[in-house]
């Protein structure tokens, strides 16, 4: 077990390194020269050369990478071109907003999927079951940003129940998730984010519960007169480890999906930040945001794997 954990940890290091390489490469593949975009067009060439040397851009790419990596490890993600502020601070503030609604969404999706999936597995061919099947196809096929727009049309435009965009008057500094006046701004982003993972997790829950219910020992328990409730509890407990693993994975994907959803709702998270970076072609900001999000995804996967190996004694990985 500890061997597995250690091994898994060590294997994460090259992956993280790879992630930094890709993030570094983002600047390299971006068209245009980073310096000329920094300075005024009439800057004399010798001044540009000086700047170039100052930023280490006259070094070979490999050296540049390690210089950059060294700065990143110290928490220096560079300076945003648009507002000339440190990228790290800006990304972290946005990341907090993203991760909170992502967590709420994924937990919501998890609970609802357990309920729906179990009902569907128990009443196979029934109404819930069919709905779940349809929901699964829908959830996989629907573009989340369109779903977000449709939610806005329904709840903000037609029904006028919820605010369409933003984070309320106070912005993210005073935002209180336990105050409805603030929280209502988060409701639609959460629903839009939760639906696709909900669809997928419901389908998996349905499949694994029905698999367990079809096993011989369950039939034996039934024959012995164990109550249906006890059997269901047993089945749910059995699928927990894999369901939790699923939850972690979906959380990661959800962070990816949030890029578009946050744009629709102008929710000031990393998605909105990325959108801003794209519109202003602020490559350092883009790079920093991607790095943080991908790093988070890797770490979430790591935690999920470790948690799963703790929870599930059947996993004997060497």
């Amino acid at each position: 077990m500890w061997m597995y954990a250690l091994r898994r940890l060590i294997l994460t290091i090259p992956i993280l390194l790879g992630v930094t390489i890709i993030c570094f490469a983002l600047v390299q593949i971006a068209p245009g020269d980073p310096i000329t975009s920094l300075v005024r067009p009439d800057t004399p060439p010798e001044q540009i050369a000086m700047l170039r040397a100052y930023y280490g851009l006259d070094q070979p790419v490999v050296v540049q990478y390690f210089m950059w990596l060294w700065r990143v490890l110290q928490g220096n993600f560079g300076t945003s071109i648009a507002n000339n502020a440190p990228v790290a601070a800006e990304v972290m503030r946005a990341f907090a907003n993203t991760i909170v609604i992502a967590l709420i969404s994924v937990v919501l999706a998890f609970i609802v999927s357990l309920i729906l999936g179990t009902i569907a597995a128990l009443r196979q061919g029934g109404i819930v079951d069919r709905l779940v099947t349809a929901l699964a196809v829908f959830g996989i096929s629907v573009p989340t940003f369109w779903l977000a727009v449709v939610l806005v049309i329904f709840f903000a435009v037609n029904l006028n129940w919820l605010p369409a965009t933003g984070m309320g008057s106070g912005g993210s500094d005073t935002f209180n998730y336990f105050d409805w006046n603030d929280f209502k701004f988060a409701v639609m982003p959460i629903i839009a984010l939760a639906l696709p993972p909900l669809a997928i997790m419901t389908r998996t829950t349905r499949a694994s519960i029905s698999e367990i219910l079809n096993q011989d020992f369950i039939q034996t328990l039934r024959a012995k007169g164990l109550s249906e409730f006890a059997i269901i509890t047993h089945a749910i407990r059995n699928i927990m480890p894999s369901a939790v693993a699923m939850l972690g994975l979906q959380l990661g994907y959800l962070i990816g999906g949030s890029v578009l959803v946050e744009t629709v709702f102008t929710w000031p998270g990393t998605g909105a930040l990325l959108n801003k970076a794209i519109l202003t072609r602020d490559i350092p900001l883009l790079q920093g945001t991607i790095l943080v999000l991908a790093g988070a995804f890797v770490l979430i996967n790591l935690v999920v794997d470790l948690a799963q190996s703790l929870v599930d004694p059947r996993i004997k990985r060497t």
């Binding site: 992630v19 890709i22 990661g252 994907y253 990816g256 999906g257 890029v259 991908a294 890797v298």
Partner: peptide, 8 residues
Amino acid sequence: FFAFPSVL
């Protein structure tokens, strides 16, 4: 590459 969610 798998370390990135595909949208990201």
